[in-house]
Amino acid sequence: MHQRRYTTLGMLAASVALNAMATAMVNAQEASTHSLEGKVIGVTVIGTDHHWDLMAYRGQIDQLEELGAEVIALDAGRNDQTQISQIQTLIAQQPDAILEQLGNIDVLDPWLQRITDAGIPLFTVDTSTPHAINNTTSNNYNIGAELALQMMQDMGAEGKIAVFNGFQSVPVCKIRYDQLMYVLESYPNVEVIQPELRDVIPNTVQQAYSDTNDVLTQHGPDSGLKAIWACWDVPTIGASQAISDAGRTDVKAYGVDGSPEFVEMVADPDSPAGAVVAQQPYEIGRQAARNVAAYLNGEDVPPFTFVSAVLINKQNAGEVAGPFLPQAGDGAQ
C-alpha cells in the first residue's frame, strides 16, 4: 500500500518536474535572442485571406525582422500555381532558410523536396512533411479528439452529425478529421450524414450557409441531427448563421482555429455555435521564426513544436474566450 502510494507520489513528482521542464523549455525558447542579422529568410504562404493565416504569416515576419533578418515574404493569393512559381524563384534566390505555411500537401511536397535538394533548410508552419527540419503547429491530434469529445458530450452520445470535409489534402484538417472518426468509433449511436459536405475557398461562409440550409431542410427537428462539424471555423460561421436563421435550437456547430467572429458566437449563449478550439496563430508564426534562428545559430531543433490551444465551449467561454474575441486586438493571439 505504502509502496503504491510512494509510486503514485513519485509519478506525480516526476510529472510536475517534467511539466516544469517543459515550461522552462518554452520560456527559454520565448526568451531566445538568437540573431538573424545578415540572414535572408523566405516566407511562402498559400494565402492570407483568413484570420489564422494572416496572423501566423505576420507572426513569422515580425519575429524574423525583430531578430534582424531580411525577409522575402510571399503570399500566393490562394493560388497553387502562383505558390509553386514563387517557391521556384525563391530557390533561385538561395535564402538562408525557407518557412512554408499551409497549402495542399500533394501539390507542395515535390517542391518542398526541391528546396531541401537545393541545400536550403526548410521549416513549416502547420504543414507536416518529411522534408522540413521542424513543423511549428498546434497539437492537432489533441484538438481533433477534444472537439469531438465535446461534441459527443453535447449530443448525449447519440444523433447525427453533418461533416464538412473538403480539405483532406491539408494535413492538419486530415488529422482533425481522422481524430473525429476515431472518437466516433466509441459511439455507435452517432451517425455521420452521407454524403459529407464540401467546404470551399473562396466564398466559404456563403457556401457553408447554403449547404447547411439544405442539410437542415433535409433533416428536420425530429431527424436526430444535432451537430455540424468542420476542421476550421470559417464554414461554421456560415453554418451557425443558417441554424439561427432556420430557428433551430437542436443543432450546434463545432470548429477549430479561433476566428474572432466564431469565438464571439460561441461566447454568445443564444448562438448555435457549440465549441471551438482556439489556436494562437501569431505565436505559432513567431515560434517558427525562433526555431529558424535557433537552427541557424547551430542549435538542435526538434522535428515539431506545439503551441498550446484552448477549447472554448458554452460553459467556459466567460473565463477563457476573452483574449480571442475581436476587441482583444490582432496581436493577442
Binding site: 490562394r78 493560388n79 497553387d80 500555381q81 509553386i84 495542399n104 500533394d106 501539390v107 511536397d109 515535390p110 489534402s169 470551399v200
Partner: peptide, 16 residues
C-alpha cells in the same frame, strides 16, 4: 502540363 506541375488537379485554374 498543369497537372504535372502541381502533381494534382486543383481548383482555381479558372482564375488564370
Amino acid at each position: 502540363l498543369i497537372v504535372s506541375r502541381l502533381s494534382a488537379s486543383t481548383t482555381g485554374t479558372g482564375l488564370m
